[in-house]
Design a protein around this nucleic acid. Sequence first.
DNA 1: TTGGGGTACTAAACCGCTCTAGTTGCCGGA
DNA 2: TCCGGCAACTAGAGCGGTTTAGTACCCCAA
Lengths: 343, 343
Amino acid sequence: MSRPTIADIAKRVGVSKGAVSFALNGRPGVSEATRARILQVAKEMNWRPHSAARALGGARAEAVGLVIARPASTLGVEPFFAHLLSGLQAGLSAQSVALHLLVVEDAEAEIEVYRGWASEHRVDGFVMVDLKVRDPRIEALEEVGVPTVVLGGPGRHGSLSSVWADDREAMLSVVDYLAALGHRRVAHVAGLPAFRHTQRRMRALRDSARRLGLVDAVSLPTDFSDAEGAAATRALLSRARRPTAIVYDSDVMALAGLGVAAEMRVRVPDEVSIVAFDDSVLTRIAHPSITALSRDTFALGRQVAEVLLEVIADPARHLDVKTATPRLVVRESTAAPGLGRDD
Amino acid sequence: MSRPTIADIAKRVGVSKGAVSFALNGRPGVSEATRARILQVAKEMNWRPHSAARALGGARAEAVGLVIARPASTLGVEPFFAHLLSGLQAGLSAQSVALHLLVVEDAEAEIEVYRGWASEHRVDGFVMVDLKVRDPRIEALEEVGVPTVVLGGPGRHGSLSSVWADDREAMLSVVDYLAALGHRRVAHVAGLPAFRHTQRRMRALRDSARRLGLVDAVSLPTDFSDAEGAAATRALLSRARRPTAIVYDSDVMALAGLGVAAEMRVRVPDEVSIVAFDDSVLTRIAHPSITALSRDTFALGRQVAEVLLEVIADPARHLDVKTATPRLVVRESTAAPGLGRDD
DNA sequence: TTGGGGTACTAAACCGCTCTAGTTGCCGGA
DNA sequence: TCCGGCAACTAGAGCGGTTTAGTACCCCAA
């Protein structure tokens, strides 16, 4: 026989549908004895709520949405993304909330999906990632009126809540560290300039260069791919006055850069130091292992989930959470310029 | 004002709810003129179907489920997984079907989620991954009665459809290649022995060793982590008669193995050749780059999605799709066993 | 003229659950 | 004895669609 409904339970126990509903939802209106009997029978019949029926009455969908506008084929490349997803899952599954995931072509399609899922009550909230410099999604999501947490900032996310890491401070700490080692020519292989965090990192490098008197502090934008990361590295290392340290905006690019250095017979860290934003297995198992800004993306994802659940519980709230600033994990890929020849 | 319903449209156009439903779903029962008028008004009012209401009536959920029983924190490590997810997305989003994703602790919880989502009509089908040797999930899913595609095989997935790659054939091709280069001592750093595909690879290595007269053809099981991959490599390279070639069950472990070799001053590929199952950026950007079995995981994911959509469309069907056998991409990490030749 | 059959449409049941507005029965107090 | 009040429970109206049964009307053949 097919799934039992509360009507079946009601008939069997000999009470009304309403009584069963009250009992199952733990609300007053039934005696303890009756409640126990109802729960017992519900269990025996292996009853489960029909989420659609609940949703019709205006209840929660018990799911949140994550829509990503990237070519699906590049998603897999980013350990960052996978970790974030894991963290989100961890935070959500604690409250048995599922994640509705969709990859679309562009921001326009993304906004369409927001509208659709919201009005179909498919989800209770959204997580928005890849905050752009002037981002049309912000306005769209505000209009849609569904609780949302933006991953990125600070600022520029309108009335939406956000969770952000201080990219500026992180970059400053990297440059300070390199400067303290004695580096004067620090280059930066950046990510997509359309991203807000890329801009903040580039600006931080410029500011620090001025403050510390560094020269040739240049940022080369890329698309985050290993190919462009390698190309940028090749360009930098081919310069007459090549940088003594390179900061990469992702672990994949740093690893690609390391490969290029080896191929060009530029020794790491003796002749060039390498630092990666974003830590992962990649930086640990590379040889030499790569000094990286470690930011526990898993925890970040979980935090995003928690904030979102809070905002869903009380839509009037507006949270703006700053996460721990990435911590620099020093490994074998950095050293004072021109020194060290321990190999 | 809140979302318009078909009743609102009906009132505005001056017809009944039923007529509106017929018009919006493109079924007979209304004249072309009326249909056009209804569609026009629906568009003006920016109407969207309420998925919960549809689901109540027994319609599709337009979503499929993927439940993974792994500690969420290890998910991100596997490029394989991320690629698979991307491919799934690509296949599903072509028909605007969303992916309901959940990470749970163990197989038991996984089965609970299958039961739950199925009876709540949250999804139209499931994708099952990580096929184990004697897998209780198979029976559970058959009982649940929701269209499912198992990633893995061949065989041992009951009445469920499946998509599988020939791991045996793949391993044979690797060993043949190594034997042809002159290798006689081939080791295998395997994955979790509970996985069916791990078993098949181990058996294939044993069979091939017998056929080709290889010695010391040993498989060391691991948990797929870079740590255990490194440890296994260290153990193998410390042997008195160490292997001249090592096959790794994942790209991450191969990269970790490469690191260990460098650290132990065992030259690759001069003293030991390295081959990875599963290709990704990692194997390409490593230095030296790693010879790998490339299997286009993205395409695999898309194929799974397509098969699932087919089975959902016609639940009576049973598909069993064998994907292209992984192709060996030779890079810098393999060569004839030159130095340290001591047979 | 009748009647059969097709088309275009309406009314209402139905899906499974929630929630409000009763209704019943019992108790205690005046 | 009557009545108010409360706890326990019932009846039934939604929620937003789909779908079935039924109706009104028209056309055409007998």
